[in-house]
């Protein structure tokens, strides 16, 4: 099986590479690239994302043909794709970080700043928080409700269709922390930094 971590200069992806390498351990051919041909021939794709919504979208658009290739892969052909952090946020139609920016439009919705209730909640939302599983998700197989995952973000994805939400976390309000629709998966938390339980999420994705 070929799994591609999309390297589109979206910031620091070393931890994503390290954790997938650990879980894949020789069983899976893992590649880190933005090469369109290699992405097309992959079985699964991981779309990481760090920094701002705008900078990630700009970087993605900066690589000729990449957005269309990803859309063909995940939306038209419905092959498994996992977006992590801003990688998930970019599924939205629109984001408001830095400047109003169009997202990929794969799941209708917006990405807005978390309401910190006049400073009552520190932002970024950094640290370990419990996930509340909202529906059965294949990437949460054997993962208990209320497991701790590691978060670091100031913006949240608000999808229009609530049925895509597979888990939420409580910080100021119920924040969407994972989505699943067909073979499209996204986590707001960082499975690659969430200790053994996070590696299990990665393992579940690789075993799909």
């Amino acid at each position: 099986m070929n799994v591609t971590i999309v390297d589109y200069q979206s910031g620091n992806i070393s931890s994503v590479i390290n954790s997938f390498t650990e879980v894949a351990k020789g069983k899976i051919n893992l590649q880190v690239t933005s090469d369109i041909k290699k992405i097309k021939s992959s079985d699964k794709i991981v779309l990481p994302g760090q920094g701002s919504f705008k900078s990630c979208v700009d970087s993605l658009n900066g690589i000729s043909g990449l957005v269309d290739t990803l859309k063909d892969f995940a939306i038209v052909n419905k092959k498994p794709l996992l977006g992590i952090c801003v990688g998930l946020q970019m599924f939205a139609d629109i984001g408001y970080e830095e400047a109003e920016t169009r997202g990929l439009g794969w799941i209708s919705g917006k990405v807005s700043r978390i309401n910190n209730q006049n400073g009552q909640f520190k932002l970024p939302h950094i640290g370990w928080n419990e996930i509340e599983i909202q529906k059965e998700s294949r990437i949460f197989k054997e993962i208990k409700n209320k497991s701790h995952m590691y978060f670091v973000h100031s913006y949240e994805f608000i999808p229009e269709d609530k049925s895509v939400i597979s888990a939420t976390t409580d910080y100021s309000s119920k924040i969407v922390c994972s989505v699943e629709r067909d073979n499209l998966f996204g986590t707001q938390f960082h499975p690659e930094k969430s200790d053994k339980i996070g590696l299990k999420v990665i393992d579940n994705f690789l075993k799909l």
Binding site: N12, S14, S15, E22, V152, E192, K193, D195, K196, G198
Partner: peptide
């Protein structure tokens, strides 16, 4: 360390340039 520990890793001390940060992040610091 980054190949063995899957919790966030912070590194400080002597971080003075963008290049210093790039090097540490590429090595696996979060």
């Amino acid at each position: 360390t980054a190949k063995e520990c899957f919790v966030p890793l912070t590194v400080g001390g002597g971080v003075r340039t963008i290049q210093n940060i790039t090097d540490l992040l590429l090595a696996g610091a979060d």
